[in-house]
Amino acid sequence: MSNAAPTRGASKSDSPGRLAWRAFRHRRSARLATAVLVVVGGLALLAPLLPLAAPSAVHLDAKLRGPTFTAIEGAAFDAAEIKDPGRLTGWLLSARVAVFGSWELPPLFGTDALGRCLLSRILWGARLSLMVGLVASIISLIIGVGWGAVAGYAGGRTDAVLMRAVDVLYALPLMFIVIFVVALLRGFRNAHPELDVNPSLVLFAVIGATSWLTMARIVRGQVTSLRSAAFIDAARACGARPTTILWRHVLPNVSPVVLVTLTLTVPRVMLFEAFLSFLGLGVEAPDVSWGVLARQGFDALTAVHASLWLIAFPGLAFALTLLAMNVVGDALRDALDPRLRGERS
């Protein structure tokens, strides 16, 4: 909140943003967690550039190998294994082929039931899992902030109607409706293969469209209390239009809270993706996500033959990333707005 900046030790150059940044940087756990996220994000982004096996390359003679430094005999990277990469991915892949040729890392994390390299699948899966988290959160951000800001700024009857709608949606089993919709859409796609809808896109949209409620409530609360602030009155007196006031004056003041809520939405969404993937309703083959990998690792657990690495590595990747996100979110919240502490849902 820019109008409630702490004054202790503040000099002229101490903007609220800088103070918050300093408080954030001061925490060792926050620095560490940020570093983890940067590394995970970087690895995910640059996965095509690394000398990894193709995530879908099957080696039936190397099934369920434990983590090892010895390469699979006769394994060679073939860029054609990766089905329709985007432009950036294609470019990275050709760079990888130019540098490393067809050489690939041995399965450092072991191989799965079809002899596919787990390390490669985890790094390629990170791309999709992080993407789900980001895209769905951004969708929820747009809807939630729009909804909450309009309700809070308009007030009166509009506010009552909009927030009542949020209350009703809150009380619905949204997760169940998502599962229901995803299951039904799957049937729709099977019946119309010619439409070529990307299943992941549907997943992003459906999850995003159902996770904006908390954001709307929080933004609405903030905007309601800002609405009567003197500087808003001043802007109104100058003849600024409501859209200008919202965009230029209200939203920048809400942004810290929005940022915090967003950081805490991403891990929630990623967990939900893992749920859906476990139920077989998430990302579809040949795409991989961490949820899919954890599911396959779980399936590999039997009393007779336990391929522990298949659940341990995806589980660790998942836990580490989500933990880092939660730590960063908490640190941001404490840095930006101490009053928000303890509020989460």
Partner: peptide, 29 residues
């Protein structure tokens, strides 16, 4: 507690099932 919020419940189930169910046989699967 932060870790507990970051692990999907089926991964937790897998991790606990190995020692408690398969190796020691204390609990039914």
């Amino acid at each position: 507690a932060s870790l507990g919020m970051a692990v999907p419940n089926f991964v937790l189930a897998g991790a606990l099932m190995m020692p408690l169910v398969f190796w020691s046989g204390w609990l039914p699967a």
